[in-house]
């Protein structure tokens, strides 16, 4: 059966074929540069990710001036660490305290602070998370294993194309910046986990 190996050719899958067609059309029209596409994929797969955000958070925990700057102008303070991404949207940093817990969502689609967190995880894009975290944040956080005291003020922030949010978690015990950065998790910076 010489044709068996063709059955799973990815080029025959609908989406892969359509995307290839779109890409070829846009390259032929001079609208995109294939090398630029490669660089973007490479950048998002290898260069961005939660460790960028973790480095920002650890610096804020250990440098009061940087922390103040980060909370005042998140985009500029994050760009100072070399993380500016490709889209230029504003990043606002939300500080968790003993009395306030912040959690981030995007009810319309999946806006996310890519330069510091990479691409959003599957659950962030799910209808269940996006719809429910606004309506019943405590119940959703409890499902993530995060049960907050009754008197904690839970604030839900809805991202947009223009403003993305990054949560500055409460600092755990520890003094070394690298050790602190290693303790920062992606979910901690979305607000669905404590550290």
């Amino acid at each position: 059966m010489p044709h068996d190996h063709h059955d799973h050719d990815p080029l025959e899958e609908g989406a892969a074929l359509r995307v290839r067609a779109l890409e070829e059309l846009m390259i032929a029209k001079g609208l995109v540069d294939p090398a630029a596409l490669d660089a973007i994929v490479e950048y998002y797969e290898r260069e961005t990710g939660p460790r960028n955000g973790a480095a920002v958070v650890a610096r804020a925990w250990t440098d009061p001036d940087y922390r103040a700057w980060l909370l005042r102008d998140g985009s500029a303070a994050i760009a100072d660490m070399g993380f500016s991404g490709f889209q230029g949207e504003h990043i606002r940093v939300l500080e968790n305290t003993g009395t306030v817990h912040n959690v981030v969502t995007c009810t319309l689609c999946s806006c996310y602070p890519w330069p510091v967190l990479g691409l959003p995880p599957t659950w962030y894009k799910s209808a269940a998370y996006r719809a429910r975290v606004v309506r019943e944040p405590r119940a959703v956080l409890a499902e993530f294993g995060l049960v907050l005291p009754a008197d904690t003020d839970v604030r839900v922030w809805d991202s947009t194309a223009e403003i993305r949010y990054l949560v500055l978690p409460i600092r755990p015990e520890g003094t070394d910046v690298d050790a602190l950065a290693a303790m920062v998790t992606r979910n901690g910076m979305i607000g669905t986990a404590a550290l």
């Binding site: 892969a16 995307v19 596409l37 998002y44 889209q87």
Partner: peptide, 17 residues
């Protein structure tokens, strides 16, 4: 899947330019 990365990059590049 690779196509997901390509369509993502296509939009990012087109917005950037």
């Amino acid at each position: 899947a690779p196509w997901q990365a390509r369509i993502f990059a296509l939009i990012v590049a087109s917005v950037k330019t």
